[in-house]
Design a binder for these strands. Structure first.
Lengths: 156, 156
DNA sequence: TTGTATTTTGATTTCCGTTTTCAATTTCTA
DNA sequence: TAGAAATTGAAAACGGAAATCAAAATACAA
């Protein structure tokens, strides 16, 4: 967390932006939150402790986080922008439960490697990627795991 | 294309929906189009030949296509919904050029297999997935390929 | 410190794509 | 062919992101 804070403050001074109370509060709340919150949800949560802070400020500050690299914007196709703390080194992908909306993270180096190979085939220079698996998490899936997949024909 | 048409008409009668002129026109235009068009772009293109058709109808009909399985909704994070013809058998993923916005398709069974393995690890029942690689296509990337990556620090 | 230029804030409005509404029209069934 | 039911298209409503703007806060120089 230290690292991220420094990174943000460096970013501010580099860009000659001002270090305000609100920004500090939002930064700390952001680094403390665990899940992939939408701006709206994050704002609502923040508001409990800091009723004075406006939505616009939260929105703008999250954008700043993304710009300076301590936040990653995520979009799981539900029309809400989500932010998560992004760590220097690691990259992860997501399992999204379509029933309970919980989001799980995973990391798989083999997949990453194959992606690089695909890109190379197309002579494509990757700057980012997204991989999401949608379905039912272990709590939400019907029962045990014996049936062969393909029971619900409408889904891709 | 025959297959998709039948599928749609079957869907209509199964749901006791009516087979209108507009739907036929939109269906044929949709099956004919190649790229990943947004509703807006598709509508504009359609309008050249069929000025009478309204946006709402196009939108609703594309949704029907998606519901009956002959279209897949795509969202590349630019705030536009896109539709593509989806074929029974194959699944593909996308390379999205961040410079020229062109979209390339690829298929990789190894990645698909690894995804299934990841899901199994989490006891997750996959119903869908999305994988997109963002970056510069061969036409848009700076030059040749000799430099080690990491020149632009701000990008993930 | 204080003065002052500059940035930031927060309430509100604007934007923009998606979705709904509703009266008029079309389709389907008996 | 009549009548019930679904569809159409124009327009309005919606929802989240982003912009606006006057008032407030900040940083820097003297």
């Amino acid at each position: 967390m230290k690292v991220q804070k420094e990174k943000f403050f460096n970013f501010l001074s580099r860009k000659r932006l001002k270090n305000t109370n609100q920004r500090v509060v939002i930064l700390e709340a952001f680094l403390r939150q665990k899940s992939h919150l939408s701006t709206e949800d994050f704002y609502r949560q923040l508001r409990k402790k800091h009723p004075g802070i406006g939505y616009a400020t939260v929105h703008r500050t999250l954008k700043l986080f993304a710009e300076c690299g301590i936040a990653a914007e995520r979009n799981f196709g539900d029309g809400q922008m989500r932010f998560e703390v992004s760590r220097e080194d690691e990259h992860h992908d997501h399992l999204v439960c379509t029933a309970c909306s919980r989001i799980f993270e995973f990391e798989n180096q083999q997949i990453e490697q194959l992606q690089r190979e695909v890109a190379q085939t197309y002579n494509f220079q990757i700057s980012d990627h997204r991989l999401e698996l949608y379905g039912l998490c272990s709590d939400c899936r019907p029962q045990t795991t014996s049936a062969p997949q393909g029971a619900s024909p409408a889904n891709l």
